[in-house]
Write a protein that binds this DNA or RNA. Structure first.
Lengths: 156, 156, 156, 156
DNA sequence: GTGGTCTAGACCACG
DNA sequence: GTGGTCTAGACCACA
């Protein structure tokens, strides 16, 4: 992860999903957030019925406008992923637990893109796989180092 | 590669680089093209001195505006990747063969993104690696099957 | 129609859909617009493939912000009613011609509300029907008077 | 009335006004309630001097916050429709029995909106009228069927 | 010219 | 406190 990311949520002992945006990315911020929420739902990090961080807090933590967060949430609501309740934080819908199949399927598009790029780069599948292995290890290490505590208990 | 892609180049006996764009993608077409050219250069598919297809032809084949192709080339020229010569097609610069290190490095950002997503999806590195293996195999198979004619050999 | 409405589109000989917003209404402007577009599609006033007025023009004519128009269109796109094409005006989708059944069904919710209110007002169905008849006549008259020409030919 | 409605009042032998709110509606609940009370007053279902259900009871029956009920009542009080007396339930004011003319006038705005929508849908006044007739019949039937007990007589 | 993204801030509705 | 709506204006991407 060479690009700078701004993080929000789940710090310290708090056990919640982490939200990050890559400012440098060309992908609109609200889309980064929306797909991130979907991944957190797919992973179980966000369960149906869970409340999301408030728009204001996220906007503040991530350093983006309230409207941008709102837009992300609105997109997710239009896709049936979140539900609105008057005057309450948004909540993960329980009607549509996983609309794109199991968690693993949400990763496929990115990997397909990687495969396409690897092919254009003239890399063999083996080379591509090995590089991914390296990248995964590096990420894992970084993560492990970062949180010295056993990752915050799952069911706090 | 579930999304529809429009292809151009490397047909018949001609063994040249293949250009494709995903209309549905949110990534600007000119950027898709520019990064694709860079990958072809990194892979050696396009060597320094090689001529690129004409703007008109690419625009026609890919079904996009000439402006869009121009913009991609313009971007590459401004990065020193292509050079323009009076009334001639653009050629690959030999001054800056690989500005991002070996080919493998151009794949890293996408894989880092995949790793980040895998982590958010709660997948283990092993699961992510396995899925990538599947995807690479599928892509390889598809490619092999597709080109019955001895056109451009599958990079491997 | 006692409330003031700001109109846009389809003036003079131009035969296009008319867009209006009621400023005084509590219904958000973008929702007023979105449901209006749906009605125009259901009526055939807007056919699949037709382009909508540009965001800027509508915003200007209706005296609202560009973002507000954009939000209405975005909502319609998320419902599959409009489709976006790079750098072109939005267009009525042909994939989902009428997702709520025939035109008449789009009127039902409002009439159900009216029926509920009539009942609470202690009106008999006959009284309610008669009042609706009066209102329809009034509207019809007003419309006829307004456009002295034969309403602009349907298939211009 | 396809939307779910939560009801309160007029149960058992008690013959009083019925209050309902549509949770899913975008219209604020307190406004739904306030306009409903006005209709009940216009219909005579609530006569000047009649007491309204207590805030607590309505809140409980309708499953909304007491604040919301209070807000509705406050609005009505500020409009002179209800009057507050020390420690007693609110009663219908006799000063302003029908501030918008006869009952039928309270229905007009909704019917005007329906007429506007019908026009945008390309329906003839005859079609619109017929649909309203159907809707009124359906509502009437449902109501008759629903109340097997000789509770509050259907208004007719 | 088209639409899209984002911001900063004001104001509203609901609890 | 929550989210929603709207604005005015800046900047970007695409034709």
């Amino acid at each position: 992860m060479s690009d700078e990311r701004i993080e929000a949520g789940a710090r310290d002992a708090e056990a919640g999903p982490r939200f990050t945006v890559a400012e440098a990315s060309l992908e609109p911020i609200y889309m980064q957030l929306a797909s991130q929420v979907k991944r957190h739902v797919a992973s179980g990090m966000l369960a149906p019925g869970d409340e999301l961080p408030s728009v204001r807090r996220l906007a503040n933590d991530l350093g983006v406008s309230k409207m941008t967060i709102s837009k992300a949430f609105q997109l997710l609501e239009s896709q049936g992923c979140l539900v609105r309740r008057r005057g309450r934080p948004l909540v993960v819908s329980d009607g549509v637990p996983r609309r794109a199949g199991p968690a693993v399927e949400l990763l496929r598009p990115t990997l397909e893109r990687a495969a396409q790029e690897a092919s254009e780069l003239g890399l063999t599948p083996e080379q591509a796989l090995q590089l991914f292995g390296n990248v995964l290890s590096a990420a894992d290490t970084r993560r492990t180092v970062k949180s010295k505590m056993p990752a915050a208990m799952p069911a706090a």
